[in-house]
Design a protein around this nucleic acid. Structure first.
Length: 400
DNA sequence: TCTGGGGTCCTAGGACCC
DNA sequence: TCTGGGGTCCTAGGACCC
């Protein structure tokens, strides 16, 4: 099998857009950020500046660091143009974030050229048309393509041929495995495992014993470059949220209620703009000692209504009123999950769920009316009796 | 490293149902 | 009356990624 999966990743994205638009920033140690570093130029990185670092700490390491405020509209616009080029390259594009995506070029055939040639043309088009550097990794699996793009940064192209996979992979540190962060890396280091090769040499059993079943199997498979996940286009996001850091000063409860209203308004607006509705409301809290927790509530029906989300989230906030006053809240966040298309028809079909014949008849009636692909996951309504069937008139997602 | 804002996936216990 | 086994949903928390 040939290496046909591309992982394309814009280099130091926000910082590169700023350097593109403001020539005086080119070649300089600069970063984009408000409060913390969101992206740093390679010149700044080489002097120790990292993403998520507080700006003050970044200045200590890199005196003279130039920082600019983020311009999200400019980044969205640049991203949109790059994704247009992705779409011109192949229909199989799976976005991962604003600045990276997987592309499967396996179905394009010989006429278009080898994956390496396709990747090379893609890089050139992004450079010429959008003015940005993009690194591309090419491999047989998504995981390896992603590792490759990272290894070849900045402004690189790396093809990992099928017969060279493990030689490439095994010397790398365990942190390169997708899903291995600081906590997992520490646990593995305690057992003397620090490279991907050592993970591969260890059996699945010991890894499961150290990390639990899910993670253990996952990283064992990746270390052998077993990653069957296909590139999937048309994915839609599973949740949508917003949060606000509250700074040091303590807030009155009415202050918090006002902030909550802003969050609810922003999130439900975005939800409606995306033609989605949601059922689960989660409030996220962070306290003065940096502990974090969440409280959530699932509504009976999916909705896009600001009032419904406000009602549910306000209830969750009020329930912790005294505790919030005691512990000083430093962040409030709101997430809406359990999303479905806004035009999904939520139907409650009356039916006695002891009778499967009756269930079949009810579902057949729905299929006759809306088509056989129209039925989402049906939910039994236990106590009330009946069945809730989300009908999806457009089951194929249209991006986010 | 005294800490932003946007997400994903996994696990585990309890409620509830057959 | 007690018990087993299988399954889904909800809630909360943790780790990770960009």
């Amino acid at each position: 099998m040939q290496a046909t999966i591309l992982h394309a990743d814009l280099d130091s994205f926000y910082a590169s857009v700023e350097q593109r638009d403001r020539p005086e920033l080119r070649g300089r140690a600069m970063a984009v950020g408000g409060g913390v570093i969101l992206a740093a130029s390679y010149e700044a990185r080489s002097r120790g500046v990292r993403t998520a670092m507080p700006i003050r700490a970044a200045r200590e390491r890199c005196p003279g660091l130039i920082t600019v405020d983020p311009r999200m509209e400019a980044y969205s616009e640049a991203s949109r143009r790059v994704f247009e080029i992705f779409g011109d390259t192949t229909p199989l594009v799976e976005p991962i974030s604003i600045d990276e995506a997987f592309l499967d070029v396996g179905g394009l055939g010989r006429l278009v050229g080898s994956p390496e040639l396709i990747a090379s043309r893609l890089r050139e088009r992004v450079a010429v048309d959008v003015g940005l550097a993009i690194s591309v990794g090419v491999a047989r699996t998504k995981f390896l393509a992603k590792v490759a793009s990272r290894v070849c940064k900045p402004d690189g192209l790396l093809v990992v041929e099928p017969d060279g996979e493990l030689e490439f992979l095994h010397p790398l540190p365990v942190e390169r495995l997708w899903g291995v962060g600081p906590v997992t890396a520490d646990k593995l280091a305690e057992k003397g495992i620090t490279t991907v090769g050592e993970v591969a040499a260890s059996g699945e059993g010991p890894l499961v014993a150290i990390l639990g079943r899910g993670s253990g199997r996952h990283i064992h498979a990746l270390a052998h470059n077993r990653d069957p996940r296909p590139v999937v286009s048309g994915k839609r996001r599973a949740s949508i949220g917003s949060q606000r850091a509250l700074g040091r000063r303590s807030r009155t409860f009415p202050d918090l209620e006002a902030i909550l209203l802003e969050l609810v308004d922003r999130v439900s607006r975005r939800l409606r703009n995306g033609h989605r509705v949601g059922r689960t409301v989660t409030l996220r809290f962070r306290f003065g000692d940096f502990t974090r927790d969440t409280r959530s509530r699932t509504l009976g029906e999916a909705t896009g209504s600001t009032a419904a989300f406000l009602d549910a989230s306000h209830g969750l906030l009020v329930a912790r009123r005294d505790e919030i006053a005691r512990r000083r809240l430093t962040l409030l966040g709101l997430t809406i999950a359990n999303l479905s298309p806004a035009d999904a028809v939520q139907q409650s079909l009356p039916f006695d769920h002891r009778s499967s014949a009756e269930l079949d008849r009810a579902l057949d009636a729905v299929r006759d009316r809306y088509g056989s692909s129209s039925i989402g996951r049906a939910t039994l309504l236990g106590r009330e009796g009946g069945l809730r069937v989300p009908l999806l008139p457009d089951p194929v997602g249209r991006g986010t």
